[in-house]
């Protein structure tokens, strides 16, 4: 009886350690991996007015998904480029969507006003959507095609006009 209890306790301890190790490996393997394939869905609140944005609502259009924060210096550099691209491609069925993460909503609003951003900006305060996309820093940009798949380059750092145009064309073709 004692031997059986001891064996059971040993097996439980080994299983617990194995479980913790598996969790650690899974976390290490997934924390820096950017999203691929079908773009993870989300519904997030707008930063400048009431209401929410659901990614699924943009199905049938190409989406430029940009993760940013108001305290991020390179985000200031790319903001005018994203705004220009949003205007340039609007009539071709392209949407630029900014996800402000790990930031104060008020700071994000001030940032949007300062750079005259008119494309939709949503707030991901807890960073859950950022984590699902495997975003490790700001800014980062993904391109999503009309069917909701991530295509083209995953850009870490400020996006250039060339990168925007090339990847948008790819997203429209796919």
């Amino acid at each position: 009886m004692v031997a059986r209890i001891r064996l059971g306790a040993q097996m439980a301890a080994v299983a617990a350690v194995a479980g913790l190790l598996a969790l650690l490996v899974w976390k290490l393997a997934h924390q820096t991996e950017p999203a691929r394939g079908v773009a993870p869905g989300f519904t997030l609140p707008l930063i400048d007015r009431s209401g929410e944005v659901d990614l699924a609502a943009f199905r049938g259009r190409a989406v430029v998904l940009n993760f940013w924060a108001s305290w991020c210096i390179p985000c200031k550099e790319e903001a005018p480029r994203l705004q220009a691209a949003a205007r340039r491609w609007a009539t071709r069925g392209v949407v630029v969507l900014g996800i402000d993460s790990q930031d104060f909503r008020g700071d994000a609003r001030r940032f949007a006003r300062r750079y005259s951003l008119t494309y939709p900006l949503v707030h991901d305060g807890p960073g859950k959507t950022r984590a699902r996309y495997g975003v490790t820093g700001f800014p980062e940009t993904f391109f999503i095609d009309r069917r909701g798949n991530i295509v083209g380059e995953h850009i870490q750092g400020p996006v250039s006009d060339r990168q925007l145009d090339e990847n948008i064309k790819l997203a429209l073709r796919a």
Partner: peptide, 15 residues
């Protein structure tokens, strides 16, 4: 203290 924490949780979540 609770009010400050609540406001920050509202912005950044429980984390």
């Amino acid at each position: 203290k609770s009010e400050i924490k609540e406001k920050l949780v509202e912005q950044f979540g429980q984390g």
